[in-house]
Simulated assay, not measured.
Amino acid sequence: MNKMVEQKMNEMTDVFNSLPNCRVETSEDGKVLILSDTPVPWSDTLEKKDAHSEYKIGSITPHKAALGLYIDFPHNLLDIDRVEDIVDPNITLTYVEAGSKASNVKSW
């Protein structure tokens, strides 16, 4: 992991650890998980590979030159327009259908 990614990883970890009822932990298999203090109601609907814990609300994955931030939501809870309004005011994110593999062309 390069220095910039490591620095951003530390910043991202600090952000989630500073939120009430939220913490970041590294699992036994080395995944960085974002956890709630209480079980999330949709944990049983997550795909088996994503369901590390009933407290998991997401994960942070360091890549060679970027961080991947993955937040778990149940299917059909949010639509892409609502998500873009919140997290992508410049409308630069690419929507990928659940179960599909995202292209690396527009990864951040």
Results as ranks from 00 to 15, higher is better:
12 M>K: 12
14 D>H: 12
16 F>K: 07
17 N>V: 07
18 S>L: 07
18 S>Q: 11
18 S>E: 08
19 L>Q: 12
20 P>E: 14
20 P>V: 12
22 C>P: 06
22 C>Q: 12
22 C>R: 14
23 R>W: 03
25 E>A: 11
27 S>H: 12
30 G>H: 07
30 G>L: 09
32 V>S: 10
33 L>D: 02
34 I>H: 04
34 I>Q: 06
34 I>P: 01
37 D>H: 14
38 T>K: 15
39 P>E: 15
40 V>A: 03
41 P>H: 01
41 P>Q: 04
41 P>D: 07
42 W>M: 03
43 S>K: 01
45 T>I: 02
46 L>C: 03
46 L>G: 00
46 L>Y: 01
49 K>V: 07
49 K>A: 08
51 A>S: 14
51 A>R: 02
51 A>G: 09
52 H>D: 13
54 E>A: 03
54 E>D: 13
56 K>G: 01
57 I>K: 07
59 S>P: 00
59 S>K: 11
61 T>H: 07
62 P>E: 09
62 P>R: 08
62 P>G: 11
62 P>T: 04
64 K>I: 09
64 K>T: 11
65 A>L: 08
65 A>M: 09
67 L>R: 11
68 G>N: 14
70 Y>H: 08
71 I>E: 02
71 I>G: 02
72 D>Y: 06
72 D>A: 12
75 H>V: 11
76 N>F: 03
76 N>E: 13
76 N>L: 02
77 L>V: 00
80 I>M: 09
80 I>D: 12
80 I>V: 14
81 D>N: 15
81 D>F: 06
84 E>G: 04
85 D>R: 14
85 D>A: 12
86 I>H: 08
87 V>T: 12
88 D>A: 09
88 D>F: 08
